[in-house]
Design a protein around this nucleic acid. Structure first.
Length: 453
RNA sequence: GGGGGGAUGGGCCAACCUGGUAUGCUUCCAGCUUUGGGAGCUGGCGAUUUGAGUUCAAAUCUCAGUCCCCCCA
């Protein structure tokens, strides 16, 4: 099957199914099934993420799915922000209504209140990889907007504001590493007031561009200050023996990371996987039955590659199309011709081909490096070409990242929205650039806007 | 939030207007012959989205629900 990426929406749905990533036929709205290949890729991405989190001092835990209505209500923004989307369970517990988590703050912080007693307990950094549930009314889309979403959320507690804000930077850094590994470029924005997380003092969100020029939010990092520690009583005793509220952060990254990998790197033949995210990195296609095939596989595995021999009875061309659709980065062809020269033929998923001596297979690491680099560069190029400045309201809806001045006023943001794009904010960590507001002409700062998913 | 379109074996589709035995391709399964870019032949399994209504009779007409897709806000 050939896919045409020129119709991106259709291409995305077709590829998810043909590559064995998602099956959207499960008959509950917004809840598609992760098929084995798709889930394997997702787990590769999340394992890498979890490793980075643990290297940075986080510990993994697992909190319950259900919460009671009064827990959600403790922080008023939480209640307002999430209650329209909460799935309520048709059962009560001691007169309390039970809800399925739309996110885990209230659940985790109820326990944090018990766990945090002294400044010696801080910082506390815990993460979990779970599914959350929101009754989306908008149209759902597999991996992009579901009513069930798979994500990793980290929640940290600190003694001081400075320490917590350092953690914000650390969170941004961890997520940057994940997307760097995936060859996906993005911009980190400080969200405007109207778009921050309910209960956050400020929110940072990563946006990337998909091939159709629309933007996808692919990670969020929130500074909570003491907005939650006060209502949830996450208090610690400082060195002066005073009980004071702690400072908190939380950050999350979801299966949208997989959506971005599929959408950004894929082509008309199917998926193209960055090598570290590929469940199978090397597929060996034998044209002959020789003991040397097994030896080559053993050798590659001993070098640490995830490698498989396709010895199914199908024809070679069939196998090529199959593994190309699944995005396997490297194909190795071995037959009489190659073995005569003590070599194999290597074809990378992005089209690079060469013949390599079997004795030199230990050097293929450089092929993966080159391959990953070219994927990353292609997307960085794409983002650069689709970022531009606008001087007037009529110029802002071309798609991509558009930058212009904004005074910070909601009314002016509304005028921007009328054009079909939404303000995502200033770039995190960058000095504000003074610029007159595109809507009212008053003093403002440079912000970016996008056409969001 | 508003509007539009759609749903028939695993996938794509015909029949629907004009009610009466559900079409073809593909996938899948079995067998034989094949195997350096999607193999051929033979045989086989498998479907009218759900609920109600109209009718002697519903894939087809009517109403409602569910899910999917598209457009606008």
């Amino acid at each position: 099957m050939q896919f045409s990426k020129s119709n991106f929406s259709e291409w995305f749905t077709d590829v998810l199914s043909e590559a064995g990533i998602m099956d959207i036929r499960y008959p509950v709205k917004g809840m598609p099934v992760y098929m084995p290949w798709g889930f394997a890729i997702l787990r590769k991405i999340f394992s890498y993420l979890e490793g980075q989190l643990e290297d940075a001092g986080h510990e993994q835990a697992l909190f319950p799915l259900l919460l009671t209505d009064n827990l959600l209500a403790k922080e008023s923004h939480m209640l307002e922000g999430f209650s329209p989307e909460v799935f309520w369970v048709d059962a009560e517990d001691d007169g309390r209504k039970l809800a399925i988590r739309p996110t885990s703050e209230t659940i985790m912080y109820t326990m944090y209140s018990l766990w945090v007693q002294s400044y010696k307990d801080l910082p506390l950094r815990i993460h979990q990889t779970v599914t959350c549930y929101r009754q989306e009314t908008k149209a759902t889309r597999p991996l992009i907007r579901g009513r069930e979403f798979y994500w990793n959320e980290a929640h940290t507690v600190h003694a001081t504001r400075e320490d917590a804000e350092k953690q914000i930077a650390a969170g941004v850094d961890i997520y940057s590493k994940v997307y760097n590994m995936l060859g996906i470029s993005f911009l980190p924005f400080v969200r405007p007031e109207f778009d921050k997380f309910p209960g956050a003092e400020y929110s940072i969100a990563f946006d990337t561009l998909l091939p159709d020029g629309k933007s996808l939010q692919i990670a969020t990092v929130h500074y909570l200050g003491t907005n939650f520690s006060k209502p949830y009583a996450i208090l610690y005793k400082n060195e002066k023996n005073e009980r004071v509220p702690a400072y908190q952060t939380c950050y999350g990254i979801s299966m949208r990371a997989l959506a971005a990998v599929v959408a950004v790197h894929g082509d008309d033949s199917g998926l193209v996987l960055p090598s570290k995210s590929a469940p199978i990195q090397i597929i060996i296609i034998p044209f002959t039955k020789s003991p040397e095939i097994g030896e080559i596989e053993f050798k590659l595995k001993s070098f640490g590659y995830r490698c498989r021999v396709d010895d199914s009875g199908r024809r070679a061309g069939d196998k090529f199309y199959h593994w190309e659709a699944k995005g396997v980065p490297m194909r190795i062809e071995v037959g009489e011709r190659e073995l005569k020269g003590n070599s194999v033929k290597i074809a990378m998923r992005n089209g690079e081909k060469q013949v390599v001596k079997i004795s030199e297979l230990d050097k293929i690491g450089s092929l993966f490096e080159k391959y990953d680099k070219s994927l990353g560069e292609a997307h960085a190029d794409f983002i650069e070409k689709n970022t531009y400045s606008a001087g007037s309201l009529s110029e802002i809806k071309k798609g991509g990242f558009v930058k212009f001045g904004w005074c910070g006023d909601d009314e002016c943001a509304g005028k921007v929205k009328e054009q079909g794009v939404e303000i995502r904010g200033e770039i995190y960590g960058k000095k504000p650039v003074k610029l007159k507001c595109i809507a009212c002409g008053k003093d403002g700062k440079e912000v970016y806007a996008v056409h969001p998913y």
